[in-house]
Each structure stands twice: as structure tokens, then as C-alpha cells.
Design a protein around this nucleic acid. Structure first.
Lengths: 342, 342
DNA sequence: CGTCACCGTCGAACCGGTTCGACGATCGGG
DNA sequence: CCCGATCGTCGAACCGGTTCGACGGTGACG
């Protein structure tokens, strides 16, 4: 491979001049600049990333730490990842994807060795072992998901509390008075998946205020348990006219269950979920839903991260916590309850 | 951050001695070795990745080039990725995930700049623009998927031809004489997705030999088109007793269609698909299927890649093309046709 | 007791970039 | 015509590792 020394020799200038001619960081005569560029072209010169990183203390690589729990829904995960990699590339960065189980150790490895200029953390837990490591690291970081203590960290997440309230409000306004909320499986809660109880608690609180009955249960993530759970719920609460779903797997399984039971949606049961539009389209879920926009969250996190990476001033700004407000993007499957329907 | 110079000073030795003490590449007295290790520990020394890459011409990073077409199924994609990242980490490598649209340019970027020691290419097309770039690159590469010309390249893929034959054979043996095969959408073929026609052509050929009628059609990847397609097919071929599916989205949509039509599986219709066990479990597909093991393919590709990266001898070995033989891992939904059933 | 081999350590060079300070040439102004 | 500012270029140092060759000290052996 050609080095900048080769380019310089070919163009008949010194290495430093070649470097300046290519970077434009100092004035260079038009003639020399052209000769250097021609030489670089001719030799197919590409700077060595390691050497450049060593000299500039910049790698142009971002780390992305993600865990794949079997109970997490793959399509959503992939959308987060794409939001990050695509945005990073637009901004001139590559992405190092780290999926190993011991996230804290992995984070220490990539930050201490200076492989990355910054990191995005996903699958944030209430008490996340990676956060102390991140706070101590010299590189900035951004979280997708809200931890218990987010001091000093940039956080991006859906406003799950508001999502819970919007769901309850919407059905209450239509006249529903008995609802069921299916969340993620309980072990997601146990490992600190705060988004489960953030939506759940807010929904329960709002239901209490409005005088609506809300049966809140933890869900399942895999078949056939999901189907059994749904059938059990509908058996147990025959008077419930509305179903709230904070769990992609449950949403995906619902159509066959309602079909099987002969339930019409929304005439017999109003349904409102929380997932991405992409997910809704893939599985043709005919439900009202709150858009969770994973790709947008990933993208936002990267933009903020890169700002901090590239500007010393931005690095000193106070940390931000930014919530995407839940938007009800479809109203296909919610209607006034039973008797009022055609 | 501490450098090896700091460690050396702390331990009272030269930089080279510190390096040798940590790497063990030359005999070092027990006393010095302990002092150096203590110093490294005390200063929380971690080698600078850029500097090491510059000196050793090794980055301990592998590139993973993947494209995400909207008509490709996310869960399978994620399994491929995990197979690669997890195996790479086990072998001491990190993974640079590159998803940009212009794969050839991206590949050139990461190889020319020496960011990676090797690359894994996914979503291989029949005529793949990345292959010339890979062949010209100084780093070894491995493909997950079979291109038209795989000379000089390590290739890992499911044996789709055999999969097609196994599907037809299996149903023929049970007594079925009229079958339907639903493949991927036609535009997957147009962009060079060879696995579509590899399975399809082999199935058609085998059906011809056996005197079985096989209606082979291209599928859809999204709802509600998938459901409409299936209904149309079942209407058009009422005498067909077996359904072959080489398309995850179609498999996922089938239960609600059969339910809706009142078709019993396997009594009225035998079904056999091609997808991963993970996928089957998530969606509770009660079908016979051929395991496609994306994580295993990713893992195999990385193992071979790392062999070539680490051993100059292995680098000179002739390239390999390795097919996973299709295994029928479930027989839940295939039975002799109609009248013979209970 | 002298010599040789070997063990352990050191200094220096190198990997391939970037960047700082200096220096010569050119130009304008007095 | 000389001086000083400006422009363009160069040499050298530096980033932080690894590795080669050399060298001093010790032990074994003749």
C-alpha cells in the first residue's frame, strides 16, 4: 500500500507538504496541490487508519454496545442498530458493534484502548453496570433508554409514562371503562427494563384518576405462551373492552387469537399498541398504535454524540435527557365500546 | 491515559523490556516481570489500539458488510450478525458493522485504510460489485451466501438446491402429487438473490423427475400483500395438498390464512418451510421446516476468516465453498394428503 | 582461570501519519 | 535599493506501541 511518503516522493515534495496539500490545513500553491493530488490518485493512496488515529487521537469510529436478550424483539433491535450505523456513516463515522455479555468490561476495553471516539449504549437497565465505566471514560457517550441515575449522561428515549397515559386517555375518551394492559415479561423487569414499569405505572395511575378499571399483567415473549396468555386474559376479563399492548410479541400474536375467538376488532375489542411503524407494516397489525421510532432514537443519540466528540465546547455542555413524545399514528382499531358499535 | 512508557518508568525498566514483559515474547526475569505487571495494574494500563495496529499491522477488528433491504426479514438478519459478532469476540476480535448502500466503496474504505484484518460479506448477489474489491484487497474475506463466481473466495451457505429437493422428496414420499412453492419476492431475484432460484430450480427439476405438479411462484415480503397472495394461490390451486415456503414473511402469515379459510394443517394441507429454529419458536410456526441456521453460518465464516488472518500458511490454502446440508428438523405439519388423513 | 554461551535488558529504529517552528523566496513599500 | 511581511515549503519531532541488534553479566566448561 502507498504511504504518504510515496505520494510525497511521486509529487517531488516533502511528506509534510503532501499532508498539508491533502488536508488543506495550510496554504499550498496551486501547482503543488495538483501534483500531490495527482500522485495520491495515481498511487490509490488511502491514509492508514491506525497511524492517523495515533497522530490525531481520533479514530472516526463509534462504539455501539447492545445486548440481545432472547426475549427482546429482533426487528426493533435491528432498527435501533440501523438508526445508529446509518447516521454515523452520514456524519463520517464507522460503527463498532459490541454484543458481548459483559458490557462493562467490553466498554472498558474499547474506551481504554482508544478504539472509539464515543459510544452509544443500548438496552439500558435501571442499575446499569456500564454507566460508571462510561462516566469515567475519556470519550463521550449517549444512551438509548433511561437508567435510574442519568446524571452526566445524554439520554434518548420514548416517553413511556406519557405513552401509558395517552393509551388510557384515548380509550377512556371513547367510553371504555374496563381495560387490560399487557406488558413485557416479568423477567425484563427483573433485569431492570424500566420502560416496562414506566408505562405500566403511569397507565395505572391515570386509570385510577379517571375511574377506569385497568388489569395490568406481565406478558410473554414467545409462542405458544403468548397465545395462551391472551386467551387466559380474555377469559378472565370478559367485560374488558379495551386492550393495551406494550410488547411486540403479544401484538404479533393477537390477530390469530381474536380470529380464533371470533372477536371483531374494534367492534368487540379496541386495541392499542406501542411499537414501530415498520413493525406494524411487516406484520400487518391492524391496530391503533403509538409509534416508538427506534431508528429515530438511534439517530438522535448519534447526532448528539458526534456533536460532543467534535466540539470541545459541546463536550462541556450539561447533559440532556430527551424524550420522544408518543404519537398515536393510527386509529384503525379503536372505537367506542360494544353496544355503541354498528 | 497511561502509556507503556509510564509503565516502564514506574517499574524502573526500559520501554522495550516492559513490552516484552507484558507480551512474553522474550525471556524476562521473574522479578522484572512482576514489577512490570504490578505497574501496569496500578496505572490501569491498556495498550493504545492505534499505536499497536501501526506497529503490528494488525487491528484485531473484522469488518462485517451487510445490507438491509426492506424485503429481507429482520430476525434472520440479526441472527447472522450475532453469529458473526459473538464468534469474533470469542476469537479476540471486534466487529465493525458497515451497512451503507454502496458496499463496494465501503469495502474499499475499510480495507485500504487497514481498519480491519478481514471482512465478512453478507447479502451476496449473483454479480456482486464488492467481490472484485475483496479479491484485490490485502486482507482475507469470507462470504455468507453464494455468488455467481466464487473463485478465490471462501463461501458459506445453506445448500439451497438440496433444500428444494428435500422438500419435494419429503412430500412426494408422503403421497402428495400437487404442490405449491412460494419463494421470495421477484425483486429479490432481480437484484441477484441467487438463493431464490437455487431452491426453486432444484425443486422444479426434482418435481419433474418424480412426476409431481409443482406451482412455483414468487412471494411477497409484507402484509397485507402476503395474505392476499396466499389466498389467491389456495383459490387457484384447490387440488394442491402441499405447500413449500422459502420465505419467512409468508410462513409468518400462513397461520392466520389457514385459520380464516378453515384449513387444517396437516390434514388438509401439508406445510414445509425453510427458516431458522429461532424464528420458528418466536412465531410458533407449527410447520415442518428445514433449519437454515444463520448464526451457524456467520460463525463458520468468522472461524475460517480468522484462520486465514492469523496463519500465513492458511492464507495460501485454496479457497473453500462449504454448504450446510439442509436438515428437516421438525415434522409437525406434514402428513399424507387428504383422504388418507383422519 | 580464561573463554564461550546464554540470559536478560537496553537503546534505537520503525510503523505512517500530523503538526510545529523555521527558513528561503517573493513581493510591496519606503 | 533595502527592509520587512507574507507565502509556501521543509525538516524534525511526536503520537505509542513493537522488534531488532547489541551488550553486560553470569554460569558452565575446558
Amino acid at each position: 500500500m502507498a504511504t504518504i511518503g510515496d505520494v510525497a516522493r511521486e509529487a517531488g515534495v516533502s511528506r509534510s507538504t503532501a499532508s498539508y496539500a491533502l488536508s488543506g490545513k495550510r496554504p499550498i500553491s496551486e501547482d503543488v496541490r495538483r501534483r500531490v493530488q495527482a500522485a495520491a490518485e495515481a498511487l490509490a493512496y488511502t491514509p492508514n487508519a491506525g497511524a492517523r488515529a495515533l497522530a490525531t487521537a481520533r479514530t472516526k469510529v463509534l462504539g455501539l454496545l447492545a445486548r440481545f436478550h432472547e426475549d427482546e424483539f429482533a426487528p426493533a433491535m435491528l432498527q435501533y442498530i440501523l438508526g445508529v450505523t446509518d447516521t454515523a456513516r452520514d456524519l463520517g463515522y464507522d460503527t463498532l458493534l459490541v454484543t458481548e455479555a459483559d458490557g462493562a468490561r467490553a466498554l472498558r476495553r474499547i474506551t481504554d484502548s482508544r478504539m472509539v471516539d464515543g459510544v452509544v449504549l443500548m438496552n439500558i437497565a435501571q442499575e446499569d453496570a456500564r454507566l460508571p465505566v462510561l462516566r469515567a471514560a475519556p470519550q463521550p457517550g449517549a444512551l438509548v433508554g433511561l437508567p435510574g441515575d442519568c446524571s452526566g449522561l445524554d439520554v434518548f428515549d420514548l416517553d413511556f409514562e406519557e405513552a401509558g397515559r395517552v393509551m388510557v386517555d384515548h380509550l377512556h375518551r371513547l367510553g371504555h371503562r374496563e381495560l387490560i394492559l399487557v406488558s413485557q415479561p416479568e423477567h425484563v423487569v427483573e433485569r431492570g427494563g424500566a420502560y416496562v414499569w414506566r408505562l405500566r405505572d403511569a397507565a395505572l395511575e391515570r386509570a385510577r384518576l379517571l375511574g377506569v378499571t385497568l388489569h395490568a399483567v406481565y406478558g410473554e415473549s414467545r409462542q405458544p405462551a403468548v397465545g395462551q396468555l391472551l386467551n387466559g386474559l380474555l377469559d378472565a376479563h370478559p367485560a374488558a373492552t379495551g386492550l393495551l399492548i406494550n410488547n411486540e410479541a403479544v401484538a404479533a400474536a393477537l390477530p390469530s387469537v381474536t380470529h380464533q375467538r371470533g372477536l371483531r376488532v374494534p367492534e368487540d375489542l379496541s386495541v392499542i399498541g406501542r411499537y414501530s411503524a415498520e413493525f406494524a407494516a411487516t406484520f400487518s397489525l391492524p391496530y391503533s398504535f403509538i409509534e416508538s421510532a427506534p431508528d429515530r432514537l438511534g439517530s438522535m443519540a448519534v447526532r448528539q454524540l458526534v456533536r460532543r466528540v467534535e466540539s470541545p465546547a459541546a463536550r462541556r455542555e450539561p447533559s440532556v435527557v430527551r424524550f420522544i413524545s408518543p404519537e398515536l399514528v393510527s386509529l384503525a382499531s379503536t372505537a367506542p365500546p360494544g353496544p355503541a358499535a354498528p
